[in-house]
Write a protein that binds this DNA or RNA. Structure first.
Lengths: 141, 141
DNA sequence: GTCAATGCAAACCCTTTGCAAAATT
DNA sequence: AATTTTGCAAAGGGTTTGCATTGAC
């Protein structure tokens, strides 16, 4: 049982989720991936563990609900998943050609929220936001 | 033939799209909707015209390709569609409870792009971006 | 022992594809 | 007349549901 196991077992348990082998595998996979993954990508990487696709979908749903994982839409058919990063509110730059993904921080969300709430008198609080950039990486440009 | 018909007929033609009754109906529907619509919402509102669902999907695809319509993801299962607004780069605030939508402008995209490109040395150009806020409207708060 | 999570089969829903008929340019 | 666009039927692909079995707590 390595350090990672321990960490995520505790995190799962404190979210009232049983720390099964399947869940620990998926969480660590996401941890190591370094970029958002589709359910299909995760599924392929789980082949050795023989995790059933249904189980994966249910897993991702409960991870999302517990706030452990975030779902991101890049405009394609499939949603992407990544571990929620408690420290940094980061966003993504996606190459529309080769699908490369980089992170960036500093979207100045507080300022934008203030501006938006001043414009729309109908809203009271903002709890969440999505912000993704699309363009071309240096190789594809 | 009202004023709207003429406008959109020309717009469709200049995008090399035939201005069929079905297309004009959908374009005007989106024009009047004032907020993004799912394909299912549009489909229901087309019942009287008996537009086939397949036709609607193909229509939305060609509208998107020609830049007449933008697709937006609010994190749910279905994507939303709205007329592309050439003048204003506007974004949305969505109530997570009642699904109400308001617009806002001024996401300071130029500044964020500059910041993001400075952070990610791997990207050269940004061509597009998504930015949506989620929260509670005054009624639901 | 209790309750949650998994596996499996089947269903579900949204979307796409192929081809012939109809409509627009 | 040439080419798009539509309608229909069928298939495709991702995701969800119900239920019995397995496993974590």
């Amino acid at each position: 049982m390595n350090k990672c196991d321990v960490d995520y077992k505790q995190i799962l348990n404190s979210a009232h989720l049983h720390a099964t082998d399947e869940r620990l595998f998926v969480v660590e996979l996401l941890h190591r991936a370094l970029k958002p993954q589709t359910s299909k990508e995760i599924f392929k990487k789980c082949k050795n563990l023989k995790i059933h696709e249904t189980t994966l979908y249910r897993m991702l749903a409960s991870f999302k609900e517990s706030g452990l994982v975030k779902q991101i839409d890049f405009g394609g058919k499939l949603p992407y998943f990544e571990l929620a990063d408690m420290e940094h509110d980061h966003h993504h730059i996606v190459c529309t050609h080769c699908k490369k993904v980089s992170d960036f921080t500093g979207c100045d969300i507080d300022k934008v929220v203030k501006k938006a709430l001043a414009q729309s008198k109908e809203f009271k609080t903002i709890t969440n936001h999505s912000f993704e950039l699309f363009g071309l990486c240096k190789k594809c440009a």
